[in-house]
Each structure stands twice: as C-alpha cells, then as structure tokens.
Write a protein that binds this DNA or RNA. Structure first.
Lengths: 144, 144
DNA sequence: ATCTTAGATGCAAATAACTTGCAACTGAAG
DNA sequence: CTTCAGTTGCAAGTTATTTGCATCTAAGAT
C-alpha cells in the first residue's frame, strides 16, 4: 500500500523525499481522515523538523494527483485520507468522526445536462448527523 | 418577498435595523448567490457605512434562522441566497455561476442508519462542471 | 563517486475569510 | 420620552492555508 503510493508518486516525475515518504506513511497507515495539522504532528516521530508548510504543499500535491483524497466539511480544516477513489462520508456533528460510505447515493439523471444546460463533471456529497455513541450522549449531556 | 422575510425576522424577536433591511433587500432582490463581500458592496448604495463585520453577523444570523440559505463550494468564500428551502446546486468551475437544482438527486435508503450505526440529520450536495457558455469556451481559450 | 541542477524544503511573512471585544448607539416596549 | 437589551462600527484577533526566497537535496548525467 505504502510502496504503491510512493510508486505512483514517482511515476509522475516527482522526487521522493524523506518528508514525502513520511507523509505518505502516516496517511497510508491509518483509515482516519486527518487534518494537515494532525499529519504534521504524527509525522514528527519519523521525520522531525518537517515543516507544516511542507505538509500542506505535499498533501495538496498528492490530492491533486489523486493519490490521496481530500474532504472539506465546511466547518474546521480540510481532511486528507489514503483512499482516493470517488466516495462520500457521514460526518458526526458532535465528535467529528468520519465514516466512509460504501455506495454513492447520488443519482443524477442523464437529462440534467439539457435541463440545466450544464455539463456535470463531478460532485461532492457529505451527510451529517450523529454516530451511535454521540446519539446516546445527546440529551444527556449539554448540546441538545 | 422582502416584507415576508423582514416579517419572519421580526417574529423571532430580532430588531429590524436599517442595516438588516438593506441586507435583506439586496438578497431578496436577486436570484444570485452572493458572497458577504458582494452583499457589502451592493448594500453601500442604500446604506453606506454598513460595516462588513455587520454584514457577516447578519448573514450568518439569517442563515441560522433559516430565513436565507448559505452554501460553501470549498474554494472561495461562502455564498448566501434568498432561497432557504433544502436544495442543491450546479457550480461552474470556470465562471463561478451557480444554478439551483429543482430536485434533490440524493437517495439515502433507510437501512443506512443500521448499516453505518449513524443517524443522518442532513446532507449537502453540490455538483460541478461547466455551464454551456463556458463549455464552448473550453478548449478555445486557456484552461483545457 | 562526484557533479549538476531543477525541484523541494524551512522559515517567516502574507493572505483570505471570517470572528470577536468593546464602547457607543438605537429600535421598540413601556 | 425614557430605558436598556440588542446592534453596530471599528480595530484587533483568529484560523487555515499560501507564498517568497535563500538554502538544500534527490537523482540523472558524467
């Protein structure tokens, strides 16, 4: 997995630096959806002195190359994940947990192009609500 | 329309100030999806000296009260619109034009809650691509 | 193994888009 | 026309991210 990602990166003519390896390893080693800040923290152990600006530069580069995925839930910072194929998420409004959806629930019928005179090339969809743990807490502690 | 929005605002116990009237008038008077900055500019004519911070405060307040709508396409600033019911958009990647969708193309089946152990309370969906004008320009001028 | 250099990094400063603290102001209930 | 909680203007602060630039380094050429 890690080697595969590094490979795809090199194929595109980019240098495989210590910093880049570290970032790829951190992301590929978790199923979580991490912010740039979180990636920066976790990377410290294998590559201290890796600058936050470099983390941003590389996460964005990897996302542009579609080697990793990037999601933005509108509130806080953007999040990055190793999975790069088209997919969507459930986002817990209480704890921030992110769950990957297995199937895309969006069905744009083919008439949309003529109805709206618009060619759709992509879409984003994110659902929000409460994961079970938080659902139970709701109504018990604060935040109604 | 304008009066209706003002009414809904007053009903909730908020004061109807000159600034708020101006903001509501600008938004209700257009079908466009405006940024706070744009609202601020257009409001100058009917209410100069209206501060940008006040525009932000009121647009957010109106959106929280679901009197207006707020969309965020992830790139630039958030946009506000007079329509407040649940709906979605097509967003042109070239010119930034926003088209309202008449129907919601998302179908979350009822099993989702048990499948993912998650209670969905809402969702956002935005599709992007190119409006006809820009589609024709693509390939002729810059940006392939 | 060493040279070369375009590409990458670190650091500090800059930016974009808001948000907040606070003193002064003002709708609207009485 | 008084009262005062709700609003506003202004300046400063915050958050998330980007950029300029001098220095450094991966990796192909020698």
């Amino acid at each position: 997995m890690v080697e595969h990602l590094k490979q795809r990166f090199r194929e595109r003519g980019y240098r495989l630096t210590r910093q880049r390896e570290a970032i790829i390893e951190v992301l590929a080693g978790t199923g979580e959806h991490l912010t740039a800040e979180e990636v920066h923290q976790r990377v410290q152990s294998i590559c201290p002195e890796l600058n936050l600006a470099t983390v941003y530069r590389n996460l964005n580069l990897l996302a542009e190359q579609k080697i990793i995925g990037k999601v933005d839930f509108g509130d806080g910072p953007a999040r990055f994940e190793a999975r790069s194929e088209h997919h969507h998420h459930l986002y817990c409004l209480r704890c921030g947990r992110v769950v990957d959806l297995l199937h895309c629930p969006v069905h744009l019928d083919e008439k949309i192009s003529e109805t709206y005179r618009f060619r759709v090339t992509g879409h984003q969809f994110e659902a929000y609500g409460y994961c079970m743990g938080c659902e139970l807490l709701n109504g018990k502690v604060g935040k109604p």
